Amino acid sequence: MEVVLGVDTLSYHCRLEDGDIALEEVFREVVDCGGSFVQLNAHHLRDRSPDQLDSLRALAAELSLGLTLSGDVVGRAAEGDSVESGVRRVLRWAELAERLGSPFVRVSSGFYRNELLGFPERIRAEQRYVTDVLAASASQAPGRVRVLLENHSDFTPEEYVEIIEGVGSDRVAVFLDVINPVSMLRDPLPVVRKLAPWAPAGHAKDYRLVSHYVEDRFHRRGFDVQYCYPGEGVADLEALVGALVATQQDGPYLLSIEGLDNHPGVADQRERLTASVAFLRKLLASATAGEAA
Rank of each mutant, 00 (worst) to 15 (best):
F27G: 07
Y129C: 07
G233W: 03
G86F: 06
G168T: 05
D47T: 14
R144C: 02
S36A: 14
F27V: 09
V7A: 14
I164Y: 05
E232N: 05
N151I: 09
D187Y: 11
L117R: 15
A287P: 10
N180S: 06
R217I: 05
E165L: 04
R272A: 10
F111V: 13
H43Y: 13
T131I: 04
C14P: 00
L189K: 10
G6D: 04
L5S: 08
L149I: 13
L96G: 09
A138K: 12
L185Q: 08
E24T: 14
V133E: 08
V26N: 04
A285H: 08
P181Q: 09
G101A: 08
E25T: 12
D20L: 11
F104R: 07
L185P: 00
L254H: 14
A135W: 03
L69I: 07
S139Y: 00
L254K: 03
Q248G: 08
S286M: 02
V130R: 03
S55F: 00
D47L: 14
S211G: 09
P142H: 07
V87C: 04
R208N: 00
L40A: 11
P230I: 05
S108P: 00
L69P: 05
L16H: 03
G143L: 12
G110S: 05
K205P: 06
A292L: 12
E95C: 06
A138V: 13
L56H: 06
F111S: 11
L209N: 01
G6Y: 04
L100R: 07
S49Y: 03
L134A: 10
P103G: 10
L40Y: 11
A196S: 15
V266N: 12
V83G: 03
L117Q: 12
P120Q: 01
K194E: 14
E158P: 03
H43W: 12
I164W: 04
S108T: 15
S169H: 05
L23F: 06
E150K: 09
G101S: 10
A138C: 13
D32V: 12
D206P: 10
V214I: 14
V210E: 15
D51F: 01
S211Q: 12
H13P: 00
G34A: 02
L209M: 11
R193V: 12
L209T: 13
D250F: 00
K205H: 08
R113K: 08
G242Q: 04
F27R: 06
E2R: 15
L149H: 11
L283K: 13
G290L: 12
G66M: 10
V167A: 03
A196I: 08
L284A: 07
V87G: 05
R193L: 02
P120M: 02
R272C: 10
V130Y: 01
L149R: 05
